[in-house]
Amino acid sequence: MPSQTLEGGFTEPAVQSATAFRSVMEAMARPGTCHTITGATPPSPLSKAAGAVLLTLCDTNTPLYLAGPTDTPEVRAWIAFHTGAPLVGPTVCAFAIGSWADLMPLDPYPIGTPDYPDRSATLIVETDTLPSEKAALIGPGIKDKAYLSLPDLAPIQINHRLFPLGLDFIFTSEATVTALPRSTQVS
């Protein structure tokens, strides 16, 4: 087994995953706010933040979809060793990871059922700092208004209209995490 596979996980899993989760939770609870998340060094092209999110949330019970260039033998081996998450296609995944363009379109992902809206996918979107215009966010978790750079508005607006069904997004970039739950209205 290459050493790259064995390395890059949390050195103190209980303590580091707790801290990492707090960043993800704060991000999901307060859409548009950015939080530092560290502790993981996954193989390229995954960011440190994405690696930490995967280690914090994924395991053998969470089917994962690797979109586009994230699906490399190195990434597969790393995920298998550190999380055991089964790798699947977008239609049955609990989590998906990739760039916005590679994750598109949103239609195939599970959005939950009216009885169980929680049975939906969470998309971990790898982003470079985007030069795009900032979108205005309103909704639960936001006092008045928040702003966030988003890769595209229309699919996110369509997703919001499905509420309480829909997808939730976690945006990762280097060592930063921010999130956009389905409850947020974007304009």
């Binding site: 899993p13 209980a14 303590v15 995953s17 707790a18 989760f21 993800v24 939770m25 999901m28 609870a29 914090t56 949330l57 994924c58 395991d59 019970n61 969470t62 609990a94 169980y116 809206p117 929680d118 939906s120 969470t122 639960p140 978790g141 509420f163 309480p164 939730d168 739950p181 389905r182 409850s183």
Partner: peptide
Amino acid sequence: NFAYLDEQTKRMIRRAILKGLAVPGYQVP
């Protein structure tokens, strides 16, 4: 383990918390 629960259980609870935050007021099993 730190805070009693094993890591797998915590991950399961953490995922439920995130869903709960995404759908406020909905009871996540």
